[in-house]
Simulated scan of single mutants.
Amino acid sequence: MLLQFTKMQGLGNDFMMIDLVTQRARLETEQIRQLADRHFGVGFDQLLTVEPPRDPEMDFRYRIYNADGSEVENCGNGARCFARFVYDQRLTHKREIRVETQGGPLTLMIEEDGRVRVDMGKPRFEPVEVPFSAEQDLPLHALDVDGEHLEIGVVSMGNPHALLRVDDVDAAPVARLGSAIERHPRFPRRVNAGFMQVVTRQEIRLRVFERGVGETLACGTGACAAVANGIRWGLLESPVEVELPGGRLTIEWSDKDATMFMTGPALKVFDGRVPLS
């Protein structure tokens, strides 16, 4: 069969969008890996599917697969692309869209300037929520990685994140430490590793080594995780501009009991069809 898809990107974080509301397909892990190949397939950081909701209070079900075929709980940049996709494909006429994800419900809002604002929910710092092996919730946890003693913040934004503060994000050993942190045994489901440089109290620079993908040009949940930890550490105050290699996001978190909001762009690259055996 020929599978229709749309390629989209949010700050260079690229996605293969598949409508499984109006077409039927079942994607196996090996098929996703083949589609993710940038030389022999479509190529993407994540594959996102739009499905009918299981919860009648939701508009859609939003599923996220990494390039290695693993399904994950949440993706902030993907959520923005998801909103633009379902609206532009006329799967909905709503500008405020509620979707169910493996990491919990999300509310997506398409603004008049075309950017998308996403209610990302509340950051969850308790180690059991991440999950992370630790006896108690602390702002900083000691972690021995690749022969180095690090201090990291951990948080769940519907998916797991570890954050390391660095003096210069350009010089940070993202590939080496990111890979080691991602697969550290204290993270039983692996983890996304963020490297944050504080510029001012309302601006940071960030690089993220994503679980199952490697370093990407942008990570929406990673930006939220960085700001959540930065505010918790007393280094930042809302709103915060997050500069990623692919562009900028605005993150708002008014207080510890409030939900977080992320605002940024989502753009279509092209439509296509690919044979699915």
Rank of each mutant, 00 (worst) to 15 (best):
L3E: 00
Q4A: 05
T6P: 00
G12L: 09
I18G: 00
I18M: 01
L20F: 10
L20V: 10
A25E: 01
R26D: 14
L27N: 12
Q31I: 10
Q31F: 09
I32Y: 04
I32V: 14
Q34M: 13
F40G: 04
L47E: 02
L48D: 00
P52M: 12
P53L: 14
D55C: 12
P56H: 09
P56G: 10
E57N: 14
M58Y: 10
F60S: 02
F60G: 02
R61Y: 13
R61I: 05
Y65C: 01
N66C: 05
G69M: 13
E71R: 11
G76N: 12
G78Q: 02
R80G: 06
R80C: 04
C81P: 07
C81V: 11
R84N: 07
R90Q: 15
L91T: 09
R95D: 10
I97F: 02
I97E: 01
L106C: 12
L106I: 13
T107M: 06
D113A: 07
R117G: 10
P123E: 05
R124W: 06
P127G: 13
E129C: 11
V130H: 07
P131G: 11
P131L: 11
P131R: 12
S133C: 11
E135I: 10
Q136W: 01
D137H: 03
D137C: 07
L138T: 14
P139S: 13
H141G: 07
A142C: 08
H149S: 15
G153H: 04
V155I: 02
V155N: 00
M157P: 06
G158S: 11
G158M: 04
G158L: 04
P160G: 08
L163C: 14
L164Q: 00
R165Y: 14
D168I: 07
P173C: 05
L177F: 12
L177T: 11
I181G: 03
I181L: 07
R183Q: 15
R186N: 11
R186W: 12
R190D: 13
A193L: 09
G194D: 06
G194I: 01
M196I: 03
Q202R: 14
E203G: 01
I204G: 01
R207Y: 09
G220A: 11
A223G: 08
A225L: 01
A225C: 06
A228Q: 05
N229I: 11
R232S: 11
W233R: 00
W233S: 04
L236N: 06
E237D: 15
S238N: 05
V242Y: 06
E243T: 15
L244S: 09
G246D: 02
G247L: 07
G247V: 08
T250P: 00
I251Y: 09
D255M: 02
D257L: 14
A258K: 14
T259V: 15
M260K: 01
M260Q: 01
T263M: 08
A266Q: 09
V269N: 05
F270A: 14
F270Q: 10
D271V: 05
G272D: 03
V274T: 14
L276Q: 06
L276T: 08
L276V: 13
L276Y: 07
